[in-house]
């Protein structure tokens, strides 16, 4: 399924200044039992967000009405662990369109790009600036410009550029995905496959 186009996103952000946030935290395995892609946002960060009796944990950021927005800002090594795309689906389904961190785990980063969530990797220093800006004013806005490949803290004007390869950038700007690309080159793939020894 092709996904939403991404151009410039200006939004408040939700801070999660924890390192090594793994995909088992983003969506615990017991919530992977659906056979359709829906409802995963309800269980985003389930065990950090709810007590065992399903009452909200008041001190968790997603339960704090002070913070909201379409940008999730996480600590270093975000999305490590399992390859479950459900983690990216949960992030998307909850309403986030962009995740910012100083370092992403490979598979999570790829999964985000494949469903239209933009992973923005910034320097550790800039990540700290973002956390500080949100702490100072939870309503502070962050602007993520995919065409310019920049991320800017609106209040201070502090800005940094981020990397994305031009193929993926085009895809995200236009809402295309890899399957669109691959299905167009099927005969080339079939030719290649015919020559494989096993």
């Amino acid at each position: 399924m092709a996904y939403d186009k991404f151009n410039i996103l200006t939004s408040t952000a939700v801070p999660l200044p924890i390192e090594n946030v793994d995909t088992d935290q983003i969506i615990p395995a017991r919530f992977l039992k659906a056979t359709e892609r829906k409802g995963f946002g309800d269980n985003l960060f389930r065990d950090w967000r709810y007590h065992n009796d399903d009452t909200p944990k008041e001190d968790f950021v997603l339960n704090n009405p002070t913070y909201s927005g379409k940008i999730l800002v996480g600590g270093k090594n975000f999305g490590s662990g399992s390859s479950r795309e459900h983690a990216a689906w949960a992030v998307y389904d909850y309403g986030f369109r962009c995740v910012v961190s100083s370092f992403f785990a490979d598979i999570f980063r790829g999964n985000c790009l494949n469903i239209g969530v933009l992973p923005v990797q910034v320097s550790p220093e800039f990540l700290e600036q973002i956390f500080s800006a949100i702490e100072a004013d939870p309503k502070t806005e962050i602007e993520v410009s995919l065409p310019e490949q920049t991320i800017t803290i609106k209040a201070t004007g502090a800005s940094e550029s981020f990397e994305i390869n031009s193929y993926k950038k085009e895809n995200m700007l236009n809402g295309y995905d890899d399957i669109d690309y691959l299905t167009k080159m099927k005969s080339e793939i079939q030719e290649f496959a015919a020559a494989r020894p096993f």
Binding site: S82, S83, R84, E85, H86, A88, I107, G110, N111, N114, I115, D177, D178, I179, L182
Partner: peptide, 9 residues
């Protein structure tokens, strides 16, 4: 390991 979008690919 791959994600589900890639499984479809």
């Amino acid at each position: 390991g791959i994600g589900t979008s890639e499984v479809e690919m």
